[in-house]
Write a protein that binds this DNA or RNA. Structure first.
Lengths: 230, 230
DNA sequence: AGCGTGTCACGTACGCTGTACGTGCGTCAA
DNA sequence: TTGACGCACGTACAGCGTACGTGACACGCT
């Protein structure tokens, strides 16, 4: 019996196996051993199917949230969880990223992330902005890692850089060894750490201001929750 | 007379006017008042044409690099320059981002950026990583801002959040007003500032270590080039 | 048992796509 | 004059998404 789940799963597998370009309704139908139009009894359109694929992949994010850990560590964990599924479904990741989906699939991660940020001491506005910034970084990184990469992300610009005239691009030529190689794990962790530290600094500044205000109000007590360490 | 440039320009205009999905070789040919196959005398394939489009848009990045400015400000300026063309060609931006192109089109920005970072005191490896992180953030932000939907609905997950059960997603429901509205300019600047500050801190730490090493070597002089201010 | 209704797999068909290939016209070199 | 070449163009084909119709089957009601 054909159903929506079987179709989505087949689509995911097909995308991973042969790339998003290879996906067609006929191809998926063949994969399932059914007629093309049978699919439309369960999926309204190809676009909707791709949305479902994105949603499906997104919903696979694993959560091993450890409430006892420091919030900075929890942020790191969540970012890595996101990255992990992206690496598990690299080609589907492109579908996820390039598709503006509207469903509740990606809502749980958002809820968790916001809760973590509130816990860190940020107010609503700050928490949302931090999250948006974080998502931007993670998504941008994944775009680079997953292979579909704009030139300016000098990952595999090897060939290009090799051709570049050292006179025209002196710095670029000098840094070629670093541009050629790219350890995705290290790169990701580098940026992640920088971001987390920046957030921690912000949180500390916030706590400081808070303490100052309280001090001005009734004196004493230089509090320090939401530490900036590590 | 038909030529590659006219074709690319027509493609860019068509994409901006009607979206990337509306682009077909026939459509472009019609736009130029020529036969379909004439295009193939100047462009090897549709894929190559889209690459050319991406390259063309990318090459339009304006550079008003001010060497006298502090490096942190120069970083900001470069990021904004990137963002500006993305906003000028929003739909083409999706093409740029989702396409792996290999050409020298995006090389000049990279050269400038790396030069700026070297100037800030980072060594080669750090400069490259900072740049990659920055690009990830900018690209991720643009992906969010530019959206993918045919209509430029600034609407994000609003509708979804509205439907979300407050019991299941307490934080999310509480922060709904902040999630609903999204001033892209402010959001971008917020993340940009956080990143720049993080970089500045790193640069300062670097300078400190450097000074410490020199002090240990011959004593005195607590230098401070590459400040962390601002 | 007969019948209406609903679900679902499927075939056909239409308008669209990218592009391989052949053809004919214009211009230039020998 | 002749040959070669560049370039615009038409035709043709395989493949695409999907609107629509058809027929097989399962069901509750009379």
């Amino acid at each position: 019996m054909l159903n929506r789940n079987r179709i989505v799963t087949a689509a995911v597998e097909l995308i991973e196996r042969e790339g998003a370009d290879a996906v067609s309704m006929r191809r998926i139908a063949a994969e399932l051993g059914v007629g093309v139009m049978s699919l439309y009894n369960h999926v309204p359109s190809k676009a909707a199917l791709l949305d479902a694929v994105a949603e499906d992949v997104l919903s696979r994010i694993g959560f091993a949230d450890d409430p006892s850990a420091h919030w900075t560590e929890r942020v790191r964990i969540q970012a890595r969880a996101f990255r992990r599924i992206a690496h598990h479904y690299p080609r589907c990741t492109m579908v996820v990223v390039s598709r503006q989906l509207s469903s509740t699939a990606g809502l749980l991660p958002v809820e968790r992330a916001l809760a973590t940020l509130r816990e860190a001491g940020f107010d609503g506005q700050e928490a949302v902005r931090m999250l948006r910034m974080f998502i931007a970084y993670v998504v941008g990184s994944l775009l680079r890692e997953v292979g579909v990469t704009p030139t300016f992300a000098p990952v595999r610009a090897d060939a290009v850089v090799a051709e570049a005239d050292p006179a025209l691009f002196p710095v670029l030529s000098e840094l070629r060894p670093h541009l050629d190689s790219c350890d995705h794990d290290e790169e990701f962790e580098f940026g992640l750490e920088l971001l987390v530290q920046a957030m921690a600094v912000r949180a500390a500044a916030r706590a400081e201001a808070q303490a100052g205000r309280e001090e001005g109000g009734r004196g004493g007590e230089r509090a320090g929750r939401g530490g900036a360490r590590q």
